[in-house]
């Protein structure tokens, strides 16, 4: 687990950085204190400044993708010409997807999912294929996120106030198979929600923010995508929890210091009472 080892880094090694807006390390007490912010930022390190914060590179390889049959596309007659840049060629009347191009796309998408999960974002798994319903539901539940595995009801996002009585929309949508109706993708684009989508040789990748060219019909390939996304989200959540725990401990330590200087008696009483 690389994410865990990264978080135990000493403050002297990494340079102090300012926190991103909405960063989890920005505790309410520390917001007004520039020095504290810098120290916390330095101790934690901005995950966005790291290329491979979640250890995604070691999770994926071309060989693994090939063995999961990610390279097998549809028959040449069913293709969407917009997928041409991602295709390797055709063999036996079937398009072959270039996994050398899939791999960076997949890693980027996994990183996006991880960073969204790290910042407490809501992730929605979408798959309208009935044969993968259980698989998608299981991976969403394993990572503690949400799913839509039935046919997409038009207006779920654009008319969420009426349909769901909520204004909170997902922060990231993962389309594990791009549906032919494309309603969900259009709605995600209209609502400015970033989307990750597995696009096969017969799909249109245009409206998807982070497309992953790959096979979306074979169970082996689908379970690979599901396990990768589930794993990276779980890693991000584990990192967030350990960071929050450490912040709580640091906060308690700080309150102990105030008690000694007798600046804030109420806070010290509170910390003693909570202990």
């Amino acid at each position: 687990m690389r994410a865990k080892s990264l978080s135990t880094e000493s403050p002297s090694v990494s340079k102090p950085t300012t926190l991103p807006s909405g960063g989890l390390a920005a505790a309410p007490e520390a917001q007004n204190e520039v020095t504290d912010r810098a120290v916390i930022g330095g101790a934690v390190g901005d995950p966005l400044n790291r290329d491979d914060f979640f250890g995604v590179d070691s999770m994926t390889s071309v060989r693994q993708l090939l063995e999961a049959r990610v390279h097998l596309g549809h028959k040449t007659g069913t293709w969407d010409p917009r997928m041409k840049p991602y295709l390797f060629g055709s063999r036996a009347g079937v398009h072959i997807i270039d996994l050398d191009k899939t791999l960076p796309h997949l890693r980027r998408a996994l990183n996006v999912a991880g960073h969204v999960a790290l910042r407490n974002g809501i992730i929605l798994f979408v798959s309208e294929r009935s044969q993968f319903e259980r698989l998608v539901q299981k991976s969403a539940r394993d990572s503690g996120e949400y799913f839509v595995t039935q046919q997409w009801v038009g207006g779920t996002l654009t008319n969420s106030q009426m349909l769901l009585r909520t204004v909170r929309l997902p922060d990231l949508m993962i389309f594990l198979s791009v549906p032919p109706s494309k309603t969900a993708i259009k709605e995600a684009a209209m609502c400015n929600i970033p989307s990750i989508g597995v696009v096969d040789s017969d799909c249109n990748p245009n409206l998807i923010t982070y497309p992953i060219p790959g096979n979306d019909d074979t169970p082996a390939a689908m379970s690979l995508y599901c396990s990768l996304f589930s794993e990276v989200i779980s890693r991000a959540k584990a990192t967030r929890e350990s960071r929050e725990r450490r912040e709580r401990e640091e906060g308690q330590y700080k309150e102990g210091g105030r008690e000694q200087s007798e600046k804030d008696e109420l806070a010290s009483e509170h910390s003693i009472a909570s202990q």
Binding site: V62, R63, H71, F88, I96, D100
Partner: peptide, 9 residues
């Protein structure tokens, strides 16, 4: 030689 996709394929 097993590294790139074309080799593996």
């Amino acid at each position: 030689s097993y590294r790139t996709f074309s080799d593996l394929f």
